[in-house]
Each structure stands twice: as structure tokens, then as C-alpha cells.
Design a protein around this nucleic acid. Structure first.
Lengths: 127, 127
DNA sequence: CTTGACCCTCACATTAATGTCATGGTTTAT
DNA sequence: ATAAACCATGACATTAATGTGAGGGTCAAG
């Protein structure tokens, strides 16, 4: 199939599919006219790429194990686990940071509401 | 004081201080030679900017209420609370997404370890 | 008068995947 | 043969704060 059909089937944009190829994630054979031609395997391959991208992995990380996982199970690809571990650590850091900012913001919101409540009370006293 | 001293005192880079000015967060008067001159108030102002940036607000958001909060309390600046609320909602979204990716990754790690354990067991059986 | 430490502006780089536009070749159907 | 639909490459834009470097004034101390 050609790139348009592959895009249609996978939901990836043509632009993205070309990008995956450029990043070494996806191969294509070129027809005499220069068009990319894909086998039906490409469809699953693009879906696999999308899956890993949704996990927040970079194309570079994916490139490190994609060929392996396309042929065997993740469990048999040595490169997968370290990437997952690193990503998990990174996510934990991000969550921690976000949680800390969140509680800071919540404190501030509480303070503001509290201060405003006090002001309102004063107004009532004034009346 | 000049920009170098302000940078030194606040820990902000000279580059950042100029950027804050460009974004309308910080004013300076220019000496005859073109140098920026700051009053001692600028120091607190930069610290305030840094504080809001650490909360993940953009310079644009900060610009929306900085003048107000420099003069009175946050509680009396109408523009603060909506920004905080929006930021909190955004953070919740991010945390939810990260948590979802995290549990997905954890499942995958578990699967891999499980599969490998099974393989090891088979090996023992083989011996 | 020269050196070194300041300061200035302008502009490009950074990240990473994707969108979008320009320009142009190919194919298919009418 | 021409229009419509497809494909190609290349390049710039996106986000937002900051780093960095070029090229060039200013000023104080020696």
C-alpha cells in the first residue's frame, strides 16, 4: 500500500509516517516513481510505534528496541526494561513536582478565600 | 543598582532579567550610557517573579496581576484566583495522564518480569 | 592608553513531534 | 489532454524561558 492508505488505516498523519521513517522506525521500499510502498506489516508496525509514543517514549528510545519487539515479546528484548524503568523514574519525578506545585497552589487559594472571607466579615461588622 | 548586581542578588541570570523586562514584568530606568538602573525594590520584584514562575505560571499570566500583588495582597487582586484555578485544573490533567501512563508502564514491567520468571522456571525444568 | 569588567542589542539555539506551505512530479479518470 | 487526487522533498512554525555568542560601547584602575 502507499503512504496515504497507511495513514488512513493507522490514523497517523502522512507527515508522521515520513518522520518515523526518518527516525529509523519504519522502512519502506520505493517504487520506480519514488513513491513509498508498504507491506501490510507496516500497519501493525505503525500502531506499535504509536503505542510506545503514547507511553511518552521518544523515537530514539523506541528505535532502540522496536525491531526486537516486532519479532519477539518485550520480555525477550533486553533494551525494553531499562527504558521503562527510566521512564517510570522520570514520571515519578514529574508527579512529585506537580504534586508539590499543586499543594502550594491550593494553599494559596485557601489563603485568598480565607482573607476574602475575613474582609466580608469586617464589612458586615461595619454595617 | 545595575543589572549585574540585581542578577547576583536574586540568582536570576542577566538574560532572564532582560527577558522579564521585555515581557513587561520589570521596569528599569536607563542611565545616560544606556545601562539599566534598578531600585532596591527590583530585588523583591524579581523574587516575586521567580516565585510565580516556579508555580508554573507563564510570564503572560504573571503580567496580568504582578503590579497588583506588588502593591496589595493576592486576595485583593481579582486576576490571581482565576489563574490559580486554571493552573490547578491543568496540573490535575497532567497528573492524571502521568498516572495513567505510569500504571500502564508498571503493568508492562510486571509482565516482562513474569514472563522472564516463567522462562527461568522452564530452564530449571530442562536441567 | 590599555586592560578588564561591566553593559548594550540582536539573533540564533534549545526540545520533539507534528502541522503546514511551497513547488513540483505522477497517476487516473474523464 | 486535462483535472483531481496522490506523492515527493524541503523548509519553516509551533512552545517558553533561557543559554550563548557576535559585535560593540563604557568605565575604572593601572
Amino acid at each position: 500500500m502507499r503512504i496515504g492508505e497507511l495513514a488512513e488505516r493507522t490514523g497517523a498523519s502522512i507527515r508522521s509516517i515520513r518522520y518515523y521513517e526518518q527516525q529509523g522506525l519504519l522502512a519502506s521500499v520505493r517504487l520506480a516513481n519514488g513513491y513509498r510502498e508498504y507491506t501490510s506489516l507496516a500497519e501493525e508496525q505503525v500502531r506499535t510505534i504509536q503505542l510506545y509514543l503514547q507511553l511518552g517514549l521518544t523515537t530514539e528510545q523506541i528505535a532502540g528496541f522496536l525491531n526486537c519487539v516486532l519479532q519477539s515479546k518485550e520480555a525477550f528484548c533486553e533494551n525494553v526494561l531499562p527504558v521503562y524503568e527510566r521512564k517510570l523514574a522520570e514520571i515519578d519525578d514529574q508527579i512529585r513536582l506537580l504534586a508539590s506545585i499543586k499543594s502550594n497552589l491550593e494553599d494559596r487559594v485557601r489563603s485568598i478565600l480565607e482573607e476574602r472571607r475575613k474582609s466580608e466579615d469586617e464589612c458586615k461588622t461595619c454595617e
